[in-house]
Every structure is written in structure tokens, then in C-alpha cells.
Design a protein around this nucleic acid. Sequence first.
RNA 1: GGUCGGUUUGCCGAGUGGCUAGGCGCUGGUCUGCAAAACCAGUUACAGCGGUUCGAAUCCGCUACCGACCUCCA
Length: 488
Amino acid sequence: MDSKLYIYNTLTRKKELFKPINPPFVGLYACGPTVYGDAHLGHARQAVTFDVLFRFLSFLGYKVRYIRNITDVGHLESDADEGEDKIQKKARIEKLEPMEVVQYYMNRYHENMRQLNVLPPSIEPRATGHIIEQQQLIKKIIDAGYAYIVNGSVYFDVMKYDADHHYGKLSGRKIDDLLSNTRALEGQSEKKNPLDFALWKKADPAHIMHWPSEWSEGYPGWHVECSAMSTKYLGVEFDIHGGGMDLLFPHHECEIAQSVAGYGKDSVRYWMHNNMITINGQKMGRSLGNFITLDQLFAGNHEILEQSYDPMVVRLFILQAHYRSTLDFSNESLQASEKGLKRFIQAAEKLGKIQASGHSTLDPSTLGKKCLDAMNDDLNTPVLLAHLFEATKWINAISAGQETITTNDLDGLKKIFSSYLSAVLGISLTGQNKTGDNLAEELIRSILNLRTEAKNKQDFALADRIRNELNKLGITIKDGKDGVEWEI
RNA sequence: GGUCGGUUUGCCGAGUGGCUAGGCGCUGGUCUGCAAAACCAGUUACAGCGGUUCGAAUCCGCUACCGACCUCCA
């Protein structure tokens, strides 16, 4: 395994040569969603980013164990470890079991991932299924002296930890700065210090999800699940841990502290963080309420969407930017990606029909290396795509008879398309660019446009005929002052 | 306020001390009954001001603006 993959390590703020701890095995962990709402574009970016990493490592020949968790308990709504569990809140509002909420949104998440051609991870552990592992880790941290118990809750002692190690080394924070910036809730906190975070919380009587423990009937804190589950399946030390940049602090910082405190060493070799999707220059986020869900995107069902977008279009849109840059949502950009995808699909079709010749007028021999170099450079998917677009230009030229290619070179070209575009980037080129539903909608829309034209020409006989024909199919037409509406 | 990051051609978005990123759009062309589609060609920018350098969009400094994190968030 002699790869030259460089990845940007948030811990060192540098691109580093990737060396697995136990080649050819690679352990990869990425923070998945908290399932209390539909997945949005930001979740798609996280999932696609680490899916591509998973695919590329596998492509390079590594045996990758990819863990992507589902958070189904434990994240509270407000700061200072107070407030209501989000899943519980949803359950209370909708009169469901918390596990029903979890199952519902998890199913929908999986469906969205399938649509985006995101491969299932090797293991998808859930926090509620690893309460014991979390308790074991908490116990280790207590035994090591880095946690204290108050009224049945267990808190991580950040000051004590920082005295021995360095709390803030991932996010570049200093404990003094953090302290001067905490919005401390004076008085009622059980914590010794506002920076301390909960490892285990005693459940108040209204709390639905709780488990027995030696400290109290309660539930695990925000950050333990990832530390417990990653090390359970990947070992105390593993290769890569990823997630969104917004998890960098405090979530991942706390994970490091927990590992060092509990296991006596850092668990993670390479920390990777994908950047945010922005909308009008501002971060898209659940808490900001400015997000577009994937279902809305795929259906065109949101006021700022001019049309629906195929999941593959969304995937290509995401991959046309580097994962560490912010990516701004706009209809124009998505539409540009839609055209680009079409270009790839048509090139792939042509590629299957090209006849080889005695000699090549183009030299595709270096293309494979360029593609590999792009990916090796911290997963530079936009550059890889640029090379692949270059290849489509060649394919078009060969197809038009302007250039010729040998069987050998043709095979090479085909191989590059299938390995990089399909296998590594996960762009599916089946040509099923539109779902059946979207196609039907567009057919109806174009028929209605014909009718509008007829009406404009005073050809009411034709216009009425179209309406009657559609009526027979159960489609009702409603002429309004803002245009034609229809429903089935 | 602290920490970090960004400012690239009409839009999105890579990149690098000297050589065309790419996609979309636009313009022109090929094709075509017309149109569309498709294809081909053209479209050379790097916030401002200083500095380092033979040479900087690329390194350094300052200024302006934008954003992220510091509270749950992918």
C-alpha cells in the first residue's frame, strides 16, 4: 500500500501524508446525524464528503471499516447542559415514543442517502445501543480523576484536565479565552466550572429516555457516544475521524479530552472537517431555520427553489467544490451542475459506442495519473472533475470523428470514467436523470404550456380538448390569474 | 470581544511564485424546415495599499468587507 494520499489534519492545520496505523486496514469514523428532523443539504455534504473518502480509500486498496453513527439520544436544546432532549421534545409534541421519532427520521435519512448514492457505512451504531460502553468509558474517566459526581450527574473536569494536558488543542482555543467568554448561568449550576461538560445526567422525572447506572437513573451526555462507539469498533487508536466543522468545538474537542482522560492517549490520528453549506452567504443550519431538506430539493418543494433537482445533480454540485470550502447554495449553481451531469451522461453513452482506430491522435495516458493526483491532494474533487470534463471533450471529438483512438487508449478512457466518476465520486450515470414522478410533472407542465399557447391564439377548441383529455386522466386544471394550476 | 477562515473573470468554483483549471452563462460557428438540443471556438480575473523578489493573484504586513466557531447544529 504505497499511496501518496495527503489529507488535511485539523489537529495540525497542515496537509499530512496519510499513513494507516495497521495497513491495509483503515479505521474511519464520521459523526452522523441526530435523527429528530429531515436531513438537509448540510447533511448531504457531510455524508457525500466522507462517502467519497470511504470510496477512495477502498479504491486505493485499503480495507476500510467505516463507522457512521446515528445519534438517537442525549443532545439537549440549550447551553449549560440544561433544557430538553430534542428527540424527546419532538416525541412529546407529536405524541410518539422517542424511538418512533428516531426510527421515522432514520428511515428517511437512509432513503435520502440511497438517493444520493451514498454507500452504507460498515457499521452504523446508535447511541442508545451503547449505553453500557458509554458508562464504561465514564467510569474510566472518573477513575482517572478527570470527572466528578454531583447529585447523580457526572461532569468532566476541564480545569483539571487542562492542567495535565491541553484542552483546546484541536480548535485552537485557550482556556482563559474560553472562560472570559462563557455566558455563565450564575448560581444554579452543579458544575464546578462553566466549561465542564456532562458525561452522565440524572434524569428529571419528566425525562422519558433514561437508563440505570451506578450514579443515577439517567442518560449519557453529549459527547461520550462518539468516543465510546468509535473506540469500540476501531480500537483505542484509529486513523480518521470526520465531521462537520461546526462539531469541531466543543464536540470533537471534548471527544479528545475524554479519550485522553479515559484511555490515557489520543484516539484519533487525522481529524477531518467538511465546511458548511451557505445560503445567501450564511450558514445553513437547523437552528437558523434557513435550511432546505433533501426531500424538498429533490421535489422542488420549497419557495426558494425554481425547480426540482435530481439527487445526482446535488451530489455533483457538492463535489464541484472542495470539502473544506464553504459552498453557497443557489438555483443558478444547481442548474449549472445539472447541465454538467448531463454532459457526463451523454459522454458515457458515446464512450460505449466509440470505434477504436489504428492510432490515437490524443494521448490519454497521463489522465489517470492526473485524476489520482487530484484525489491524493486532500480529495480535490473539483480538480478531478475538471480532468473528467476534459475527457468528455475528447470523447465528443472522437465520437464526431475529429480525433481517433486505439483500443488500448479507449479502454483506458473507459476505465477512468468507471473508476473515478462512478466508483470514487459515486456519480451514477445510468441516465435515470429524472424520477418517474418528476417526469410526469414535467410532461403535464409541457402539455399545459401547449394549451396556454392555443388559448393565446384564440384556439379554444384545442385548449378545451387538451383540458378534457387531461380530465379523463384525473387531472384537474385550474386557470388562475397567476397562471395554470393543476392537481391529480 | 476572542479564535479561525475567506475575498478569484457575468455566476459557481479550483489553483499556484513565472506556464489555459473546470462547469454554467454569454458571443460566434457547425448541424438543422424553424426552434431546441448537441457539438466546436472565443470569453485571462484574482478586494485595496505597501513590502520581499528578476518576476506575485500566489509569500509578508496593514486596511476594508464577508463568514464560521466561542450555545444545539453536518
